[in-house]
Amino acid sequence: MTGAESVTGAGAEPGTAGALSGSGAGSGAVFRETTADPRTQAVPLSHLSLELGHLYMEDFEAGPQRLREHFARVRPWADAARAAATVPGGRRPRVSTCFLIDDYFARFSSPAELVPLIVEEAGRAGLTVDYLARESGCAVTGKVPVAEAVAGRIVESPPPGSYGLRPPARQTGWLANGERSPVARAPQAMKRAVPWEPPKETAARRHSVFLDVELWSDDADGHRLWSCPFLAAVWQLARLGLLRNEGEAVFVAEQPDPGAFPEDWDELPSLVRLNPRADPFAAYRTASVLPSRFLPVEHAVRVVLDQLDVDHGALRQVAERSAREHAAVPDSVADRVSYVFYAGP
């Protein structure tokens, strides 16, 4: 595969599993209805998607020196992640790098000012940023409500004893890695106060590390604000090539005119290819080099990823293609994600 992110090159594989036709899938049926067959567009895939950083407003406000320091710290870990991404047969692994800018929680600067600065500072550290993404794109890309669709794919991990009734302890807008403590009620007359019971991590090894993640909050006008960990989970799915909208790929890289970045973030595509010779954006695995203060967020990302029923067609495509090129991909989506946490601001 060349470095070009060409979706047509990969082709759209008509999914045959689950088709409505009575004649059975793939049996060379004479009559077909396109609306009756599930279809999943394929996306080109690298071996590794390497994230070189997240940029928040406070980082930007700290001046260009902060960016320079950031890339200098990231460089050795990025090299290590690249070196670890070996493929069988000694062939060159396909690795693409990406950088995420937060334009969702706060708006600052402009693409025209910031994008060239990032490219320059990365270059100074000997790094190339292949793709640049906007965090808003993880909430909505074009007209596709990506975050909402992903939220609709949460299948909560069932605590022991779940036999088919909906999990009783469901909390809208929150997702936990186990069972919450029972709600403590004010003791009524004639009734004893219920003693405190601890929460319980479902996959605990002897002792629990219980985590309850806020996925979104709604303001007084009913406007939904997605939480940082939830958008980061969407970002991981995008990098793993597992996001689809009605079978079509979401987060397709666009290549803007070099040197003509817009003044407004909204005019910049959700995903921009900065390096025309880059390997495909999406990959079998992801690695992110982040400062340690992101550790709680990324723990939450793992809790979310572990409870997402991602597009079956996309999962199947990744499995088939990785098997064809003998690249081992972990079963569980959360296990396809890895990190380097470095000490730093």
Binding site: A36, D37, P38, R153
Partner: peptide, 12 residues
């Protein structure tokens, strides 16, 4: 049932 997945439709 899902915002991002098609309902399969058949007329024959």
């Amino acid at each position: 049932l899902r915002a991002d997945e098609r309902v399969l439709l058949s007329e024959r």
